[in-house]
Design a protein around this nucleic acid. Structure first.
Lengths: 211, 211
DNA sequence: GCTACTATATGAGCGTGCTCACAAAAGGTC
DNA sequence: GACCTTTTGTGAGCACGCTCATATAGTAGC
């Protein structure tokens, strides 16, 4: 049974749309692959002709969400100095080495998935923007200028990297995430103060943070 | 069917011993709960009268391994100054908040489990000692005196905390672990240099580490 | 249009961690 | 010892993610 490239793409999209809806409504684990197949209008086995594992589906969705998130972020850091870009690349590369990519992608997905953003697409953008502001507040609490380009670089690094740790825990608690974010930013801030304070330009806090 | 407390304890130990052996021989996931039950000489369902989940078995084993590891460590940091103890408690508490305990325990277990330590008990001690030295080398590479009490505090924090992240990834690669360890130690070192350099007493490196 | 041939769809079925209804054994009371 | 209560053991069975043999729909060559 052969099929046109368009039909195959449509089926794939159908699976992803079903996954997006069901994961948002009832979460990742409670949603069975049979649920997904039934919602997408295909047989249980067919699903695995399109994605090798259930997790691959979430990864694919995460890819899309990450692409949107990244473009949001890129829009905010367009006028970076090259030294700062080096630093960003440096930190990002370090984090990137630490875990398989999917670990970094899923949290972005979780945000994109949350019931608040399930319906309209603009709600997802609002959610990501809210994240930006939340991280900004934490940065400020640690004596870093939350509006500086550097802070925004840190935001993206932390958003993808730190929340990746969160996802590793399959029953995430929002409080833990924030505590982890807080702690990590404290360490990053100290690191920046020590190694490139001239760049940070806001190292007027000498007390070490109290997480 | 009532049973003496001793018999119950014996069954429990039997399960743990079976788990210790099978996990060491063939790994956590490949070992089925039916394997464990058969090896322990009980029915498949009985296992779950002793441990609520398969993961609870690994956690129980980890508890034992952690207790041994901690006593090794405590032996090495008996003569700490109180300021350093505060710092240790501070960092440890921060990390402890980040994840459920089992995430911190399992890596210690993994070390205790590794085929090298499966047979003799003294081999396990040798392995833990080897870990201490490995971390010491990494610390030294980042310009910290690996023999200082502070370094030992960092060791324990990192050993339990950082490797916990490693375990979160179910198919661990040793290289990733070391890279993560490396990166984290770089950040900790900078943090210490910035916040309590008088204590560290070895902050003669100003170049920031290259992960 | 007919005949290979291939790519895809299908659902029965596998092994997993875990549950549950029931059986069996031990202790307490008389 | 007989009876009841309570705790533990047992294995059939569940739903899960995933596989595989088979059926089927589409294309290519004639």
């Amino acid at each position: 049974m052969r099929i046109t490239r368009e039909a195959r793409q449509a089926t794939r999209r159908g699976i992803l749309d079903a996954a997006r809806r069901l994961f948002a409504e009832q979460g990742f684990e409670p949603t069975t692959t049979r649920d997904l197949a039934r919602t997408a209008g295909i047989a249980a086995g067919t699903l695995f002709n399109y994605f090798p594992t259930k997790e691959a589906i979430v990864t694919a969705l995460a890819s899309e969400a990450l692409a949107r998130g990244r473009s949001d972020f890129e829009g905010r850091r367009r006028e970076q100095a090259s030294l700062e870009e080096d630093l960003f690349a440096h930190v990002a590369a370090g984090l990137r080495r630490l875990r398989p990519l999917r670990k970094f992608l899923q949290p972005v997905l979780e945000a994109a998935f949350s019931p608040a953003s399930a319906g309209a697409d603009d709600a997802g953008a609002a959610l990501r923007s809210e994240h930006l502001e939340c991280v900004g507040r934490v940065l400020a609490a640690h004596g870093m200028d939350a509006s500086s380009p550097l802070a925004l670089q840190l935001y993206w690094t932390l958003y993808t990297g730190v929340l990746g740790f969160w996802v590793a825990d399959r029953s995430p608690k929002q409080e833990d995430t924030l505590a982890l974010l807080d702690q990590s930013i404290a360490m990053f801030a100290a690191w920046l103060r020590g190694s490139s304070s001239a760049v940070a330009g806001n190292g007027d806090h000498n007390t070490h943070p109290n997480p």
